[in-house]
Structures are given as C-alpha cells and as structure tokens.
Amino acid sequence: MSGAIVQINNVSKQYKGAQQPAVSHLTLEISKGSVFGLLGPNGAGKSTLVMLLCGLLKPDEGSIQVLDLKVGESSAAIREKIGVAPQEIALFPTLTAHENLFYFGRMYGLQTEVLKKRIDEYVNTFGLQDKMHKRVQTFSGGMKRRLNLIAALLHDPSLIILDEPTAGVDVQSRNMILEFLLTLKAKGVTILYSSHFLEEAERICTHLAIVDEGKLLVTGKPDILLAENPDCKNLEELFLKRTGKTMRD
C-alpha cells in the first residue's frame, strides 16, 4: 500500500497479569485518505491498538510509525497531529458543552477567534447549537457522543482515530455521525474507525482489518474481501466466519 500514514510492524502488547497478549505480532498499514475500519469482537485488542498508535501504551515489541514519525520517539509530535475520540465519553460532566470545547481547544493551543469559529462550525454540523450552554451531564448518550467527536476535531487533525464512536447512541445520532464521516471521507481526511458495527463499516470504510485475540485475521478493501469469500454475502458473515460464533465477554 503506497502513501501509508500509519505503519504498524509486528507489534505485540501484553498487559501485566494478563494470560495472553492484547495485541500479538500485528502488522498493518493505513494509507492516506482512507477510512480504515478496525473491526473485531469485544476484547479483540482494538482499543489497545488505538492506545499504542497514540503513544499512550508502549509496545512490548515491534514498531509503529504515524505520519512518518516513530511512536515512542515522537509521540508528542504525533499527538499534535492526530485527533482521538476515545471509547469513553472524555468530557467534564459538570461543565457545559461550550466550556468543555473551549477548554480542550485551549489545551490544543488554539487562539480564541479560531476556536470560536471551529466550535460554531462543528456544533452547527452536529446539531448542538441550542445545547451549548447546558451541562454535559444533562445530555443524552447521542449528544455526548457527538460532543466527544467534536472535541477530537477542534485542532484540525491530519489523522482522526475514532474508537467506537457510535456506541450507545440512537439511530438519528448514529446517522448524523456517519454522514459527517462521509463528508470527511469525501474531503480525503484519513480516518481510523474502530468498531464492531459491521453495517457502519460497510457504509463508510474504504479499507478494513478484522482482528481477534490481538491477531490480524484479514485486511483489505471490503469489496475485494467479499469477492475473495463468495460464501459471505456481507461483512457480518465474513466477520463471523473469521472470528467464530463463540460468545465474547
């Protein structure tokens, strides 16, 4: 794959006390301008991989390059250029939506005028303009998810990493988030999209990888992967074929 924005080379990570690695000898590339779906069941290692990419976890072995910078050596520089919407709602519940966005924007080092402009732009896009002065603790799950996503976009990142961005949201909010991601896709923004919602991945991803038990099972373009597996009518069937039907905790 040419023009790789993320290169993961033989990376492994095992947590202290864990019986098996969360990520095991995983190699992966994400090309510039792609929407890369990182798919896997619960506990597959998706969030660990996201944390490794951000430099918040140190790999036991292997190396990762993001935006031509080596994770570990240039983690701070990498974090300046990426926007991450973590799986948790990473916001202050007792602050209003505006106060949250303003604070995180300030921490990104944005000047007041730029910050105000971006906040206005995103809250309009995500339909939160009337809720900006309400405390986040009063928001619905969908509103919190949208705000969580806006907070990751304020500094105009080159790579957007979304960890389960539609978990626990209603259909309308999910649709709004996906519509927005499609507009970013059209603009050529690179997105790493971690999820276990396969229909979402099918809708927006240009490339995907299925991981389970920390290992890469399959990677490629969705249409090619389905073509290579004629017994699977859609991604869900491919997913179940690769990861099995055993229940996950």
Binding site: L56, A76, A77, I78, P86, F92, M107, Y108, A151
Partner: peptide
C-alpha cells in the same frame, strides 16, 4: 477526571501535562 475519561483526552493532547 481519570475515571470519567476527561483525563484520557488531556493525555491525548500533546504538551498538556505541565499546564
């Protein structure tokens, strides 16, 4: 902040630890 996740976002923002 650590448990609710806002600290995680701050950890994801470069140069935010000292401030």
């Amino acid at each position: 902040e650590r448990e609710e996740g806002s600290m995680l976002r701050l950890r994801l923002i470069s140069g935010s630890q000292f401030p």
